[in-house]
Structure formats: C-alpha cells, structure tokens
Design a protein around this nucleic acid. Structure first.
Lengths: 368, 368
DNA sequence: GACCGGCCTTGACACGTTTCACAAGCATGT
DNA sequence: ACATGCTTGTGAAACGTGTCAAGGCCGGTC
C-alpha cells in the first residue's frame, strides 16, 4: 500500500508538503500541487483513515444504532440522516440492535473503540442501567450522542423525537369525531416509551370526548404478525362485543390487523376502522389504504445529524420535538355505515390524503 | 481519555504488560493480571481502535454496501451476515447506495480509507467501469471482497448468489402447470442482472411448456409503487386482452400489483394470478397471501461472511449459488376458475405452504 | 549590498497500540 | 557450582498521518 512518504519521494517533495496538498491545498504552489497529485494518482494512494484518526483523535463516522432495521420507519430515518451526513462528508454506519439490550450493549462497546464523531441511538429500553455507563463513557471520550425517537431524560441530554402523546390524541380524536364509541388499542411491549405514550394520548382523547377508556390488547412485538394475531383475537368474538375501531401503536401492527380483517371478510372500515402509526410507504399502498399518524421520518434523521453537529461545535444541549400529523385514508373514512350515522361526506371515493382539522401543525418546537 | 500507558503507571507495570493482559492474558501471572484489570476498570480505559488498526494494518469491521436498505430482502441478508460476524467479534456496518452508482462509489471510496477486513457488495450495475478500479484498489490493500446477490464475473471472483434463472423457470413452470396460457412479466430496470435472469428463466419455462413468450412490462424501479402502476396499466385493458397471470421480479412489485387488484375489485387469483420473488415476510401476510420464489435471505448473508473469512484466510476463490424454492400461497392457488379448468384440487381453503414438485432442492452448489 | 518580509517547504515529533528481542528470576538436572 | 530451559516482565520500535516551529528562497527597499 502506498503511503504519504512514498508519494513524497515520487513527487520529489517532503512528506509534509504532501500532507498540505491533501489538507490545505491553498498553501501549496500550483506547480508542486500538480506534481503531488499526479504522484498520488500514479501510486493509487489511499489515505489511511486509522492513522488520520489516531492523529486527529476523532473520526468522521456517524454511527446509528437502530431498534429494528427491518422496520421501514427506521430505514427512512437512516436515509434522512445519511443525506445530511453526506453533505458533511461523514460516513454513516448502521448497526442493528434488533430489540435486544444485549446486542445493543455489544454494539455500543465496539463502537466506543472506534471513537466515532457521533452516535444516533434509538434505545431499546427506556432506562437501561447497563447502558448508562456506556453512554457516559462515549460522551467522555468526545462522541456526541443524540437520542432518536425518544426524549432525553437527563438535563444535558440531546434528543430528537416526535410527540407520541399528541399523536395518540390525534388518532383518538379522529375516531371520536367519526362517531366511534368503543375503541381498542393494539400495541406493545407497553414498556416501550413510544407505545406507552401513544396509548396515553389515546386515553386522553377518548376521555376528552366523554367516551369509555380503550380496551388494550398488548402484543409482544411491533410486527405484522403480532398485529394479525391481535386482530384474530378480536375478531373471534361475536360482532356485538367488538370495538368498532382499533388504534395501533405502529403501521406494521395495523397492516397485520388489516390483512386479518380482509382474510376474514370483515369490512374495513364499516365493521372495524383501523388507524396506524408512522405512515410508512406500505400504509398508502395497503389493500385498504391505511389512515395513519405520520411522523416526519426522514426529517427525524436529518435533524438528529444536525443536532450532532451542533453538539460537536460545543453549542448548548437542546431537544427537538416534532408534531405528528394525521393522514386520513380509507381505513377510517366515514362511509355510510350501518349503525352509527356520522355527518355524511360526499358519497364518492374516500379522499386519500385530506388533512383533518385535528392534525397538529407539523412545525418543530424546540426547547433546551 | 485513559491510555495504555496510564493504565500501566497506575498498575505499576510496564506498558507491554498491559497489552499482554489485553491480548494474551494467559502469559501474564494471575496477580498481575488482576492488578492491571483493576486499573483498567478504575480508569474507565477503552481501547483505541484506530491505533490498534494502524498497528495491525487491518480492522475487524465488515462493511456491507447494499442496493436498497428499504427493501426487506436486504435487511434480512444483513441480519444473516450480522449473526455470523458477531460470532467472530467483527462489527458489521451497513451503507446504503440506494440504487445510485454515484453514492455507491462514494461509499466505496470512504470505506477504502477505513481498511475494512471485508466488503460485502450488492452492486447497483452489472459492470460498472467506474467501480472496477475502486474494487481493485480495495483488494490490493487487503480487503476481502464478496459480491452478494450476483455472480462474480472475473476468474478470481468471490460471490454468493441465488440462481435467478432457475427461480424464473420455477415460477413459469408453476403458472404453466396451473393452466395459464398468457403470462406477463413485471420488472425492471432490465439492466439489473437479477431482473434479466428472472425474465430469461420465465421465458424458458413458458417455451418449454409450449406457451407464447411473456409480455414484458418494464418498470423503473423495484418498488411497491412501481408494481401498482404496472398493474394499473394492465387492468385498464378489457378483460379479454389481459394476461391471466403476472410474474413479478420482486415481492415489492407483486405487493403493489396485488393491492391494485384489490382496489379495482379484480379477483386474485381467479382473474389474475400473481407470483412474487424473494418471499419477504410481507408476502405471507398480504391481503391475498402471495405465492413467491423464496430466496434463503439470511443464509445468503451468513454465507457471504463465511466466504469473506475464507478469503481472509487465503483459501482459493469460490462462488456459492443457492437454489431458490417456490412457496405456493393463495395468490396463485387453483380455485374453480371460470374459463380454464385445471385439475381440480380439494375445494377447501388453498394450502398455504405446500411445496410443489417443481421446486428445486435448496442445497447450495459450490464451484470455483 | 544589506536587511526585511512574505511565501513555500521542510523535518521532527506526537498520536496509542502491538510486537519482539531481550533480560531477569527461578527451578531443574548434571 | 554451573549450564539449561522455562516463565514472566520490559522497553524500544514501528504503523501512517497531521502539525508546527524553523529555515530557505526570492524580490523589494533604503
């Protein structure tokens, strides 16, 4: 492998000059720069990032540790993060904790050895005592840490998240407005902050509308399969004992529930309305297009990197909280239902992306 | 940040001893090892991977550059790769080229500077002249390169892939066996080797059954949206001028097509049978469970890492080709169709995972 | 012609780790 | 008592880069 030294020899200059050509080309005269660049080309020289990093003390790598790479929500967040990181010539690397605190810890340990510029973490558990010291060590060694999709708990914490409670409220209000009186919630594990907050918001909205509290169907994971199983439990009951709507903690669950309905020939939304959460791309193209609470996924990632850079620049800590936005599609659209009679909309096809009045503004509110 | 030197001072030993404790603990006496470990703990010492790597000349990082992180197929491949890499204490980092040769090249350039142990690449284009020198440079500097999901072209190439031509044939034969006479193919860009091979296989199977060649609907990308649009084109025609089955290059396309059928109230499979490719998890849970050509996704990733390790160990190059396997579900199941009358199956619900006789063995065939 | 200032270039050093030849200590065998 | 071998610990050197103080060169001014 060619090194700076060999390039210098070949170009007939000193080693320091080559380094200048690479890092501050403006201080090197035109002719010399030319010669050095040619030598680099001829030798196929590639900078050694390890040496560079050893010298600099910090790398240009941004690590993202993600709860579940298989969830389209997270891949979109990553895509957004990549876009901004790329502009700053940083390399984004993704690690998957797959919902396991053990694997998460392993990744954090390995990453700490790499001295990354920053770390974007969407944590598995809310307050993991084993994780705290690892994060502390990372911060001490100069790695910027930003929590993604969950607010930071400590005072000096950086985070970017979406107001899950508000999202839950918005979903609940929408269902209440449509005249639903029995609403169920499908989600879990309830230990996940996101899930708990969305449920809490739903509760608030229903209570606010004078409706009974939601029945909660807890599921072991946020997957399509789990959603289908929860729906199966529900649909096994006689029609009179079912809720008329379910609000799901996640689009994967909602899609699973939806498919179970289609398979059992249960009409959506006439017999059961379904609301998802995240508004992943699959939501719009589902067999019954899914009403969902949209999170600004790409922007979440983008903003996380933004905060990372601020943190590196020594700016004071802050947290960004986005407001989610309800996207109404066919899975809840009011369509001449039999028992309840809500205000009748135009009898044409349900609008696909109308924005309900209850949707909150999507601007970010920031607070330190 | 604590360094080895500081640990040595604190423990009252030489710097080399600390290194021995870390790397060859068996050569250090019990008492000393104890003392050193305590010092490490007290100082919160974390190894500096850069320095380590600079000295060693190679890292323990395996980079994966993937065509599309948003495609569940690739996330499953990555998951498989992670599992094996983890056993060898290697760190898997994922980069997303998003189908752009430009971004792919950028990632390769940045990765080259990191001197990774190995690179798993699922290439964007078949033979990219700009990429060739980058890969060559990586190989020269000692990075093991394994092509994933596409056979290597050169002699000394390593790769792990699935026989796409066979997969196409299997899908075609299945449709022919069910009595379909007009079959269309949805896929694209046709420049993608995987797509071209699957189409070629389909052609062979149809020709072998004495059927006319498939109509080809080319799409710009392998996405749900593109699949829906292609299906819309097809379904806009009068029923008599449509094919009775479509074979899709990919499950995302197939799901899109399926949803378009459901939305237009076109019965699947009675009016239009649909076959996908990949058998991602969403295939089984679709509103009409999708018949698909299963690829051993996780094993693909696992095997890729396996080859990587062999290559690092200096073993001779080889290529692994897996055989795909047809998974029959409702989207093609024979069900008393109106015009054609194939051998009637039991009139109960269609079997969900029966294995057709035409499915090839799923064992891997290996050749150097 | 001496001096000065500005522009380029140089060469040595530091970053934190691993490795390796070597030395010290000790027990064993002759 | 001495050689021998084994175990255990030591210290210096090297990996490739970035930085920085110092010096060389050149043109201009008095």
């Amino acid at each position: 492998m060619a090194t700076v030294k060999q390039v210098a020899e070949r170009a007939g200059v000193s080693l320091g000059t080559v380094s200048n050509v690479l890092n501050r080309p403006e201080v090197v005269s035109e002719a010399l720069r030319e010669r050095v660049l040619r030598a680099i080309d001829e030798l196929g020289f590639v900078r050694n990032e390890s040496a560079r990093q050893l010298r600099a003390g910090v790398s240009r790598t941004v690590a993202v540790v993600v709860l579940d790479v298989a969830n389209p929500f997270f891949t979109d967040v990553v895509t957004g993060a990549e876009a901004l990181a790329e502009e700053h010539d940083a390399l984004v690397v993704v690690c998957n904790s797959g919902g396991s605190t053990h694997r998460e810890a392993g990744h954090l340990r390995r990453l700490a050895q790499q001295r990354p510029l920053g770390l974007l973490l969407s944590p598995v558990e809310d307050d993991d005592d084993d994780r705290a010291p690892l994060l502390e060590a990372l911060r001490r060694q100069g790695t910027a840490v930003v929590l993604v999709d969950r607010g930071a708990t400590g005072e000096g914490g950086w985070s970017v998240s979406v107001d899950d409670r508000l999202g839950g409220r918005v979903a609940g209000r929408h269902l209440a407005d449509l005249g639903h009186r029995r609403v169920a919630f499908v989600g879990g594990p309830l230990g996940l902050r996101q899930v708990a907050d969305r449920l809490a918001g739903l509760r608030e909205a229903l209570a606010g509308a004078g409706l009974p509290a939601p029945e909660v169907l807890e599921v072991p994971e946020l997957s399509v399969r789990a959603g289908a199983e929860a729906a199966a439990r529900l649909l096994a009951r006689p029609a009179g004992e079912r809720p008329s709507a379910v609000s799901c903690a996640n689009d994967l669950l909602a899609l699973g529930a939806l498919n179970e309905c289609v398979r059992r020939r249960v009409a959506v939304p006439a017999e059961l309305a379904v609301v998802g959460y995240d508004d992943i791309d699959f939501a719009a193209t589902a067999s019954v297009p899914l009403t969902s609470v949209r999170q600004p996924r790409a922007q979440l990632g983008r903003t996380a990197v933004q905060l990372l850079l601020e943190q590196v620049a020594g700016r004071p800590a802050r947290r960004v909280v986005f407001d989610p936005e309800l996207v109404v599609r066919a899975s809840t659209a009011a369509q001449e239902p039999s028992p309840p009679a809500p205000p009748s909309p135009p009898p044409s096809r349900p609008s696909r992306t109308s924005r309900p009045r209850s949707a909150a503004s999507s601007g970010a509110s920031s607070s330190s």
